[in-house]
Design a protein around this nucleic acid. Structure first.
Lengths: 146, 146
DNA sequence: CTTGATGCAAAATATTTGCATGCTC
DNA sequence: GAGCATGCAAATATTTTGCATCAAG
C-alpha cells in the first residue's frame, strides 16, 4: 500500500500541474480517505471530517468539489452501490474489484489476474480504448448466511 | 430475445404470486422497457411514456415504484453510470455485461464465458452466495477515437 | 367490496451553484 | 496582489411519502 507521504506528494504534483491550489481542506479530505480506507459517500466523509477536525469547519460543497476533482485526477475513484449512491475510495491503490454483501453491506476487495486479462481482450475485440473497468459481485457473505 | 407476450405473462405471474395487481400503468412501463431496449433513467422512461401514451397520464412516482418492483422481481435490472444515476433495462435477457463509451455514451453489451466462470470461482473462494454480478468496461469506442 | 395502486403535491435527499470573502502562490 | 478555493445559503435535481381517490381482483 502506498504511504501517506507519497500519496500527498502525488496529489500536490497533480495540483501543481493543473495550476490548482493545495489547501488545508484538500489535504484533510485526502487524509480522511487514506485513514478510513473503506468506501464512503460524500456525506459520510463530511461527517467524519466534522468529527475528526471540527475546527476546520469543512463545508459539504467543498467535499463534493474535492472528491470530483480527485476522481478526475485519478486520486480517488467512486463506485455506485444500488440505493446508497456513490461511494469514494482512494484511486491509487492497486486495481481491484469488489464483493458486496447485500445483507450487511460488507465490501471485500479482490484482484484476479484472469479477469484483468480477459477484460483487456474484450476491450480489444470491440475496438475500445479501455480507461477503466469495474466488476461487482453481489451476494450474501458467509456470516450473513449463518 | 424473449417475446413481449412471454414477458408479459411472466410479469403477470410474478404479480399474482405476490398478490399484487396488474394495472395499465405497469403494463405500459413494461412495454416501454421492451420497446426502447436501451438503458433509461426513471425520468427518461417517464418522459417516453408521456409522449407515447399521453392519455395514460402516468406519474413519476408510479414509474419509480414500478421500476423498483420490477427490479426486485428480476423483471428489470439497473446499472449505475457515474454521474447520470441509475438506468434500467429488462432483466430477463440473457445475462451480459457492458462496455460504455465515455465520449458518446454508447453502451455495448457483451457476454463472456470466461468471465462468467471466473466470477463463480471467485465467489466460491470467498464463500459468497452470489446473487448477481456486473462488469463495466469504460473507455472510448472506435468512432470517438477517430 | 376489499385492498392494493395511482396521481398529486409535499417532503426528504442529494448535489450543484452564486457570491462575498479568505488563502495560496 | 491576482486568482483560485471556501463556506454558506439558495437553487436544482432526484427520489420517496402521505393521502384521497380509483380500480383490479
Amino acid at each position: 500500500m502506498i504511504t501517506y507521504d507519497k500519496l500527498l506528494a502525488q496529489f500536490k504534483k497533480i495540483l501543481k500541474h493543473k495550476r490548482l491550489k493545495f489547501t488545508k481542506q484538500r489535504e484533510l479530505i485526502l487524509k480522511c480517505l487514506y485513514e478510513n480506507d473503506a468506501h464512503h459517500t460524500p456525506e459520510e466523509i463530511h461527517r467524519l471530517l466534522k468529527i475528526q477536525y471540527p475546527e476546520a469547519g469543512i463545508g459539504i460543497a467543498t467535499v463534493y468539489r474535492t472528491l470530483a476533482l480527485m476522481e478526475e485526477s485519478g486520486i480517488a475513484s467512486s463506485i455506485s452501490f444500488g440505493v446508497q449512491g456513490k461511494k469514494y475510495e482512494l484511486g491509487l491503490k492497486k486495481h481491484h474489484d469488489h464483493l458486496i454483501c447485500t445483507a450487511c453491506g460488507k465490501i471485500i476487495e479482490f484482484f484476479d489476474e484472469t479477469i484483468e486479462r480477459r477484460q483487456e481482450e474484450i476491450a480489444r475485440a470491440f475496438d475500445f480504448a479501455m480507461s477503466d473497468h469495474t466488476m461487482k459481485i453481489v451476494g450474501l457473505c458467509s456470516d450473513c448466511r449463518k
